[in-house]
Write a protein that binds this DNA or RNA. Structure first.
Ligand SMILES: [Mn+2]
Ligand SMILES: [Mn+2]
Ligand SMILES: [Zn+2]
Ligand SMILES: [Zn+2]
Lengths: 149, 149
DNA sequence: GATGAAATTGAATTTCAATTTCAATATTGA
DNA sequence: TCAATATTGAAATTGAAATTCAATTTCATC
């Protein structure tokens, strides 16, 4: 359970482990990821309707600070959160038709970035890379639709 | 002058070429790029204070629609605009210390993306890629600072 | 277990950029 | 010139993010 890591990190920061935080953490960590605050809140409310929207907001911010969550802002402007997969970095393919978000990891891409940064004498802290387009499923549907007409 | 292209595109869309739009276009096209609306408005207001903020907002939205401007949202969340460089796509290196934005083009990166997309049977429409970190100048300053202490 | 300083909670409020409204004005094709 | 239609700009609205504050909870210490 990541509850232990959570408690450790939380006390490291001089903060307090509350029922609400634990409950939100458990729900969030087992969720599907890439959800916005309203979606996470809805899940929390289903299990414990006493927990306020503000607390969910603040807890996600806290989890991000603790390194347990990652905040994402894709081109649609919505703020989303996903459980942080420790160590590994990944990027995203985003379907403009159905909204599906596909994750990928590519070591060559990382190496290439190092080259770009070096040429500009730039020290990389982190990066963001997203590919927008049409997923396989949606593409198939489109072809079907065209054939019928 | 891009004024001609602007007039053509504008009438293609059944819209009207107004003094305000032309004035905003001229100021924007010769600007340094990566500016937010408040900054663009400030420039416009210096030359013609009669033009309203709303008009600048709507004109930048229009220019984006016409393909003459590109809207950018980097990680700081600010909405910025830059004149669209026809044909060529570029990405950005962003200094977290001074805010400097460096543009780069890399064909290998584009090729690599095609490979990633193909492996996921994904049809690319466009992409976004930003590298965050520390620019040469800021890095130099940091080293200097450390030496003095 | 009791205590209390400090942190947290949650409803309500505020902030602030983005967007919309609407009456007055400008543009354009006939 | 003359409408029909689009645009303008001040003001109002929206909505997500962030803050406020009184009530409540946590937890180190006793
Ligand atoms: Mn992800
Ligand atoms: Mn640029
Ligand atoms: Zn899809
Ligand atoms: Zn810098």
């Amino acid at each position: 359970m990541e509850t232990d890591l959570f408690k450790t990190r939380i006390s490291e920061e001089g903060l307090k482990a509350t029922k609400q935080r634990e409950e939100i953490l458990n729900i969030f960590m087992t969720s599907s990821g890439h959800q916005n605050l309203a979606q996470i809140y809805a899940q929390v409310a289903k299990i414990n309707p006493k927990i306020g929207y503000t607390t969910v907001y603040r807890t996600l911010k806290l989890l991000t600070h603790l390194g347990l969550a990652t905040q994402r802002k894709f081109a649609d402007g919505e703020t989303r959160y996903e459980p942080a997969s420790e160590g590994s970095h990944h990027d995203h393919l985003i379907c403009l038709d159905c909204g599906k978000i596909i994750e990928f990891e590519d070591q060559t891409l990382e190496t290439l970035q190092n080259g770009i940064a070096r040429r500009h004498r730039f020290k990389i802290s982190h990066h963001r890379m997203e590919i927008y387009g049409c997923c396989e499923e949606c593409h198939r549907k489109k072809r079907m639709g065209r054939r019928k007409s």
